[in-house]
Simulated scan of single mutants.
Amino acid sequence: MKQIVLSIIAYAVQRDIDTAKLCRLAGINLTALKKTNAPPVTQQQLDALWLHGARLSGDPLFALHFAASVQPAALGVVGQIIQTSATVGEAITHAAALTHYVTDQCRLEIARNNKNFTVRFIPAGGNVNEPTMAFRVLVELLMVITIHEVSGLMLEKIVPLTVRLPYNVPDAAAYEQIFRCRPTKRAGEYALVFDIRYWEEPILTANYELQDLLLKKVAAMAPQQPAKTAGTLQARVYNYLLANSYLGVISLEEMAANFNLSPRSLQRKLKEEGVKYQDIADAVRKSLALYYISSGSYPLKDISYMLGYNELSAFTRAFRRWTGSSPLQYQSL
């Protein structure tokens, strides 16, 4: 719980929220929370954090957008075990067995047949068809983490066959963007259904040392951002893209949703600063490409996938445009 709360606060910083005010409204002492002997965060404090995060950001889907950006470290030891699993099926099986380390509000149940596998989120108690807002936020968070984390570990964008919720969602298009398919209402069920082909897929980043290196890249690369842009919208966009780049460089539409803007408004605001979203995305991709190649830890094909290129040839063309040389030529320097 503590690690998730710290991750929510870190996400609030990325959203340009006054975190001192957020913590005060939620009744959280951030200084005390950072200490090893900090008292546990209560459910009431966590609920208040979600509520005031949404209000201060002006984003009613604040929790859902946080879920789409959360990194494995937010799950503590559970995240580490998932990272070091060999296959998707093994990672999900471990996650199901260890859910109680993340929350006591629900458990995971897995069912398989020869066509698909289903991950069900079973409430610990209460009426699943009329859940509290806090419980809805929690389960939606866990569902989105399941989709996005497995995608990040596989370096492939997983799309569920079905997402089932026991209520109608308030913004179907926004939910579809984050869940990657439009949720359907089914009484009494929170569930994700995936094609069975994913079950035995190997996790390419199962080597924890490589994953740890990947997640530490932000601190190493932050100084590359031009000082003159500090505090601007483009700086916030750049930092957000970099901090969440282990899941790939997100689209303009996804970025706009995270800033609670329309794509057109985001483009207009960036244009006022003399830059386009694609320019910032390319700057991040270039920085990441140089970092990955220089580390010597990743094959070029994997780097291509991590940066969102389906074909190595497309990555090679982009790299040549950025540097004047091919990735292979740069690698040999």
Rank of each mutant, 00 (worst) to 15 (best):
S151R: 13
S69Y: 03
L108C: 13
D59I: 04
A222R: 14
R55F: 04
V41Y: 10
A222S: 11
E90K: 10
M1D: 03
E272D: 15
T36R: 12
A230D: 11
L290A: 05
R112I: 10
R264W: 06
P131M: 15
W199H: 04
K2T: 13
M133K: 15
L30N: 04
S69R: 08
A97L: 11
N113L: 05
Q83D: 13
N37W: 07
E130W: 10
P226S: 06
M143E: 07
A32G: 14
S297I: 02
S325P: 00
S57C: 11
M133D: 14
Y198R: 09
A191G: 01
R180I: 02
L290Q: 12
P223I: 15
E156R: 09
T87D: 00
W199Q: 06
A206M: 06
I81F: 09
I250W: 03
A68K: 02
L56K: 03
A124K: 12
Q80P: 01
N114G: 00
L155H: 05
C181E: 15
H148D: 10
T205K: 11
V77M: 08
N244W: 12
N244L: 11
Y240M: 14
W322Y: 13
E253Q: 06
A96K: 06
G231E: 08
V77S: 13
L204H: 03
T103H: 13
H148P: 07
V77K: 09
F117P: 05
K157S: 12
H52M: 04
G125P: 00
Y277T: 00
Q225I: 14
Q278F: 04
V237M: 15
H148R: 14
R164V: 00
V218G: 01
R112E: 14
D104G: 14
K271F: 11
L56T: 07
L161V: 15
T99P: 03
D282Q: 14
K276C: 03
R24S: 11
G274A: 12
A12Y: 03
R112G: 04
V169S: 03
A32S: 09
Y277A: 04
I92R: 07
W50P: 00
P166V: 10
S245H: 05
N113I: 06
P183T: 11
K216M: 14
A48G: 03
I145P: 00
I4M: 15
M306A: 11
L214Y: 10
A281Y: 05
I28A: 02
T118F: 00
R55T: 12
S313I: 08
H148K: 10
L242A: 12
K21S: 15
A257M: 14
L215A: 09
E272Q: 09
L108N: 05
D18R: 04
S251D: 08
K286A: 09
R112Y: 02
A91W: 06
Q224E: 15
R136K: 07
A26M: 06
E201T: 08
S265M: 14
A191L: 05
T118R: 12
Y11I: 02
R164I: 00
R186D: 01
M306S: 09
I250D: 08
